[in-house]
């Protein structure tokens, strides 16, 4: 579809706001609707839109296949490590209050932020990986 000038121009205009919106959804998720799951999906949607219009090769220059695969596993690792950090600091697994013993609710806030970051990274990585693999399959018999 890369010969369609309207699609190309519109995609170039639309993709940056989508990425920005994903980050807004991520970091505003504590205060309004949103969070890691939604942000990850929206971020992946930006990448998929780019991939549909400009082709897989140019997309994989932006986000190579190894990078998105690493993201998929990195997010789970971030989540689990935040949990382990709670044990290291003397609390329970996934208890964020011990991060700042004097201000438990700030520890909770930090923990939620990190955990949601892990969720976003994983969901983005998974959706992008699945898309890459389906798209690459399509080229096989051509």
């Amino acid at each position: 579809m890369s010969d369609q000038i309207i699609l190309r121009v519109a995609t170039k205009i639309v993709v940056p706001p989508i990425v920005l919106f994903a980050l807004y959804v991520q970091f505003h998720g504590d205060f309004g609707p949103g969070g890691g799951f939604q942000a990850g999906v929206i971020l992946a949607a930006a990448l998929i839109l780019y991939g549909l219009v400009f082709g897989l090769r140019r997309t994989q220059k932006v986000a190579p296949s190894w990078l998105v695969r690493t993201c998929a596993s990195l997010g789970v690792l971030i989540y689990a490590l935040v949990g382990v950090e709670g044990i290291v600091l003397g609390g329970h697994f996934l208890n964020y209050s011990v991060f700042f013993p004097l201000h438990p609710e700030e520890g909770q806030h930090l923990g939620i932020l990190l955990v949601e970051l892990g969720v976003m990274v994983t969901v983005f990585g998974v959706m992008a990986t699945v898309f890459y693999f389906f798209a690459a399959r399509g080229r096989e018999d051509l």
Partner: peptide
């Protein structure tokens, strides 16, 4: 008081029920 996050869904998702989400 405990979490200090206005969105209760996020609080339950990431803190009270963090095991589920993991």
């Amino acid at each position: 008081e405990e979490i200090g996050v206005p969105n209760v869904v996020t609080a339950v998702l990431a803190s009270y029920r963090g095991y589920d989400t993991l």
